[in-house]
């Protein structure tokens, strides 16, 4: 088969027909003759190489000096960042570099030019000589015999059983890695709840100022947190990681609203979770002409006009919508919490 594809086997370059390789082989000619180096034959070249090595070592010394010049000469901490800190970093770095390269290149040049360059051969030893193996086997058998492991089966089996379960406490010790002291169900249930609830105002991230419906013009995007988040002392980032919302206004004719969500927007103003349903990056990129939301981490793209359905990328479901309304003063507030867990999917999400 091979021969036909690769031409006449009698000519060079032909594929050897399978299984018919000639067994007779060339013999190893041994190490080739060793030509002397210029430093071996020419004393002047040898002197020159010696000087070169010395110069390299001196360069190393200069490098160390350069380091100290950068360290003490440029200034103390808190120096101007763009110029002086950069200069210091460069001087310290190049100083170190020259100090190291000088030594390294010097030693290697020394080895190459002045130390003997005769290649020599060393023979390999058998890795596992048979005599050793036999001896080891004997020893192991003797040890097993003397220990009684083979005869006293009850002892062996109870020991194995005990050893198998003894590490379990060590594993279960890690149960309290979650510091919340919650039971298993309550632990997982946290993922379903955020700070949003009825009447919680939508406020700007990070200033905490409330947002009037009239502030939200077509084409604008507000990064929103729930009112009161900034005042939290504990777990602020945990709450923020679930509660951040993106607020935009859509032209009414571009919106598709599914049954049950008719009242979730305020005159085209919609609020969606900013946490990507893929693996949780903030989906913060709003294209105001196409009304697409893009996640910069893995490029999941959500279509705002179709209730943030996934139209590209690795996300598996739409961004959850936050039902909003207007309060008496004209500020935007939540109608309730999200109706589904925000962020990445997980086993218990269902």
């Amino acid at each position: 088969m091979g021969d036909e594809r690769h031409g006449d086997p009698k000519h060079s370059g032909a594929v050897d027909p399978v299984g018919q390789g000639d067994v007779n082989q060339f013999t190893n000619p041994g190490l080739p003759p060793h030509p002397p180096r210029i430093t071996d034959t020419n004393p002047q070249a040898e002197k020159r190489a010696e000087r070169q090595v010395m110069v390299l070592f001196i360069i190393s010394v200069i490098g160390t000096v350069l380091f100290f010049f950068g360290y003490f000469g440029v200034g103390h901490t808190g120096i101007e960042i763009g110029t002086k800190l950069r200069l210091q970093n460069t001087l310290i770095g190049l100083g170190t570099a020259f100090a190291m390269l000088g030594i390294g290149l010097g030693i290697i040049h020394w080895a190459k030019a002045l130390m003997p360059d005769h290649e020599t051969a060393e023979s390999r030893h058998e890795i596992a000589p048979e005599s050793q193996r036999a001896e080891a086997q004997e020893i192991i058998e003797q040890v097993l015999e003397e220990s009684g492991m083979k005869r006293r089966k009850v002892l062996r089996n109870t020991l194995l059983g005990a050893a198998a379960i003894a590490p379990l406490p060590a594993i279960f010790m890690f149960r309290d890695l979650d510091r919340s002291q919650l039971g298993a169900h309550a632990m997982v249930d946290r993922l379903r709840h955020t700070m949003w609830s009825e009447g919680v105002r939508l406020v700007r991230d990070p200033s905490g100022l409330p947002i009037k419906a009239s502030d939200v013009q077509l084409g604008s995007a507000f990064h929103v947190i729930p009112e009161g988040l900034n005042e939290l002392h504990e777990g602020k980032l945990n709450e923020k990681a679930k509660a951040v919302v993106l607020l935009m206004r859509l032209p009414k004719d571009k919106m598709t609203v599914s049954p049950g969500r008719e009242t979730w927007n305020v005159d085209g103003i919609v609020a969606y979770s900013k946490i990507c349903t893929h693996v949780g990056c903030p989906v913060a990129l709003y294209e105001q002409q196409t009304h697409h939301l893009l996640c910069p981490c893995h490029q999941s793209t959500f279509d705002l006009t179709q209730e943030c359905k996934v139209i590209f990328g690795p996300a598996g479901h739409a961004l959850p919508q936050l039902p909003i309304k207007m309060d008496d003063e004209g500020y935007l507030v939540a109608q309730s919490d999200f109706q589904e867990p925000v962020g990445p999917s997980y086993w218990e999400r269902g």
Binding site: G93, T96, M100, I108, W110
Partner: peptide
């Protein structure tokens, strides 16, 4: 000498990169 010298060379190269 070669292997030992090479340590200094690698260190020097990384230092040069970190400097610049």
């Amino acid at each position: 000498a070669k292997a030992g010298g090479f340590f200094f060379v690698v260190f020097g190269a990384i230092a040069a990169i970190a400097a610049l």
